[in-house]
Simulated assay, not measured.
Amino acid sequence: MKARLKDVAAKAGVAPNTASTILNRRPNSWASKETEERVFKAAEELGYRPSRAALGLRLGSFRTVGLLIPDLHNPIYTTYADYLECRLREMDYDLILEHSRTDLEYEKHCLDSLLERQIDAVSYFVSDRKNQAAFLEKAKAAGKEVVVLTEALEKPLPYDTIEMDFSSGINAAIEHLLELGHRRFVFLCALAKGQEPGERPDAYRRLLSERGIPQQDCSFISCAHELSSARTAFGEFLDASKQDRPTALIAMNDLSAFGAMRAAWDRGLDVPGDLSVIGVDDIPLGDCLYRRLTTIGQPLKKMADTTAEMLLSRLEAKSAPPKPRAVRFEAKLLLKETTAPPPVS
């Protein structure tokens, strides 16, 4: 049976109010040092812990941060969550997770659910800024601190922001493939349910056009975040382009790259002999394939540490909270074993 406050008080020989004052370390305690030691010893022997919820309501802080991740099955997000949890634990904060399952409608539910929980702050990966504008206003009105993780922005947000700049990594990947001799490209982009590709196709085609690659030699495919979806989408694309197949693929995350590699293997194509493949994220699994995946890596631990520092600087602020700030990280191309010169015609 779970120990109650009155059990601790009885064991220590004090009134329940006295035990509560001591265990919650209230400044108005007049108990002697000997009495305090007796109460803490009784609580330890009985396995009693004060209610964190009740303590949070009294102190105005639950020492808990909420994190929304879009895909529990993608190691990029669970690894980030692990780094963040470790850093917060060092400061005596807990982390709770919500999982939006890469669905923009369900994401709204998850964000609202976080606001209803006993948390002090929230961090999440922005998939669609317009879709989440209402949540940011709700969070602000509820007095919750926010750190958002997003791609590089042209205009700063009025919130603390971790920005991931993929432009240098994407440019390095394209330059690398061009130097190898590739002239036919395909981009594979995993999108959340309800999400549109937006300007991505035009942006990729523009990057290649600036380097002399005509639009007809730059294809764009979208898929869901599941491996099976990437495998199916790219497989159907290969079947429809047998006469003029691309020789280089850049997938917008490593899991999509894995699915595409399987689709290529299903059709007797060799990676990288027939098809060079580059992913994004640098998840550890990519180094365990029969060919180590060339990828564009993100500094996840630095991102998580910075997120924690931003949150704690606000949650632990003794005076006016700091102004919103943005910290930008650059993704880097990591050359491994899935790129090579294109096959000779």
Rank of each mutant, 00 (worst) to 15 (best):
G60C: 05
G60M: 06
S61P: 00
F62Q: 02
V65K: 03
L67C: 06
L67V: 05
L67F: 04
L68V: 13
L68M: 11
I69G: 01
P70E: 10
L72G: 14
L72K: 03
P75K: 12
I76R: 12
I76S: 12
Y77C: 05
Y77K: 07
T79Y: 08
T79L: 14
A81K: 06
A81C: 04
D82G: 09
Y83L: 09
L84C: 04
E85A: 14
C86I: 14
R87A: 15
L88E: 01
R89S: 14
R89H: 14
E90L: 15
M91V: 15
M91Q: 13
Y93G: 01
Y93P: 00
L97S: 05
L97H: 08
E98P: 04
E98M: 15
T102C: 15
T102N: 15
T102Q: 15
D103H: 08
E105M: 11
Y106D: 12
Y106W: 11
H109L: 13
L111Q: 08
E116I: 07
R117Q: 12
Q118T: 07
D120W: 02
A121C: 02
V122T: 07
S123V: 08
Y124K: 00
F125D: 04
F125Q: 04
V126F: 00
S127K: 15
S127Y: 15
S127V: 12
D128F: 09
R129C: 11
A134H: 13
F135W: 03
F135K: 05
L136Y: 02
E137R: 14
K138L: 09
A142F: 09
G143F: 10
K144E: 03
V146R: 00
V146G: 05
V147M: 01
L149S: 02
T150W: 00
T150D: 09
A152W: 07
L157P: 02
L157A: 01
Y159L: 08
D160V: 05
I162R: 06
I162F: 02
E163Q: 10
N171K: 10
N171V: 10
N171A: 14
A172Q: 12
A173Y: 10
A173T: 06
A173L: 08
H176Y: 12
L178M: 09
L178N: 11
E179G: 15
E179C: 11
L180H: 13
F185H: 01
